[in-house]
Design a protein around this nucleic acid. Structure first.
Lengths: 197, 197
DNA sequence: GTCTATAAAGCGATAGAC
DNA sequence: GTCTATCGCTTTATAGAC
């Protein structure tokens, strides 16, 4: 991460000073103003870079026919992504600045949460086409929304405001969320793992 | 709302100046420092007040035996609460300041999101005792967590970063979330409304 | 392009009169 | 308790030398 990224993410927009950025980058302030028109422009550039870096990394693993396994894998990847320290920081900083620079909030939302939701929605569509899920009476993108929401849920809020929950709780949340989705949209003839004798 | 509330909520902690608070309150800066030791103390007091005001207002309506109706009512109250402008503002401002004043984030989490989740969890426990829901194989507080998470979901994130979603979408989210919960934890003999002929 | 030096303004907090 | 005035510091941004 560049110097400016570190300063902005750990101080917030208003409290981050161009002096601090310059000092950490090992250059003078005037040099920064050669490359960026002002503090806002620098911030905007950073948010775009971090948003892409974080949210485009989500892996949608596909293990043939075991739907429960697929959803669980995706869930774990997603939760790991949103609970990373830098993801939490960019979330806080962008959100705080959104009322004063709406374009930044908009860009983050579309390149981040909305992008992820759409990606998972499309994956659900492909699962339905392969006969592995059934969205009759609802809609894959809506279920993707609720699925990701459950996974983030209290764990995300708790991580943002106090501290990350322990791994046990996270795993129980994942299992229950997968349960709920499969109970409503699973094809029971294919989604249930064989019961051990 | 007091003057300090307005200034802090619309500017954020760092960008809010004591001059602005004083001007809006119609007093001098020195007068404020008689009542509060410093800027941080003033902020802390405000967060406590707003948190209580917002989150203790949630109504858990109880309509006898129609579980679907009860969950839908609670869902609507909850979504209305978290999408209010002042709720969104306090969420943004507290979150931005959490890395620098962890006690404030902690207090907000416990008096806000965690408080609500616990309240709904207890309500689910009471519904199970009355034979209206069935949490076999899971746990009412976990389901309460996931239920509220689904209701907030993308609508909350979108409202925080760009603009509130339209009412139609919110209602579809509520219906689907209630569906998912009842599909897993509903007592099918009592929860389904009669089919119209 | 990169530096040093500085301008111009805003900040939190306080002193001292009333 | 409340005011005016101000201290001491930090901020963004720029001017001008190299």
């Amino acid at each position: 991460m560049g110097a400016a990224e570190v300063i902005f993410l750990e101080s917030g927009y208003a409290a981050a000073s161009m002096d601090a950025v310059a000092a950490r980058a090992g250059v003078s302030k005037a040099t920064i103003y050669v490359h960026f028109q002002n503090k806002r422009a620098l911030f905007e550039a950073i948010v775009h870079r971090r948003t892409d870096a974080v949210f485009q990394a989500l892996q949608l693993s596909d293990s043939r026919t075991d739907v429960r396994r697929m959803l669980t894998d995706i869930a774990l990847n997603f939760v790991t992504m949103i609970l990373r320290d830098d993801t939490l920081s960019v979330y806080r900083v962008v959100l705080a600045e959104t009322p004063h620079q709406p374009e930044v909030g908009e860009a983050f939302y579309h390149g981040g949460p909305a992008f992820t939701r759409h990606k998972v929605g499309e994956f659900f569509v492909s699962l339905e086409k392969r006969g592995l899920m059934d969205f009759t009476g609802t809609d894959p993108f809506m279920v993707a929304d609720l699925f990701l929401a459950m996974l983030a849920g209290d764990a995300h809020i708790k991580a943002l405001f106090t501290a990350k929950p322990d791994e046990d709780r996270i795993n129980r949340v994942i299992d229950t969320a997968v349960d709920l989705v499969l109970c409503r949209c699973g094809r029971h003839d294919v989604s249930r793992p064989p019961v051990s004798p």
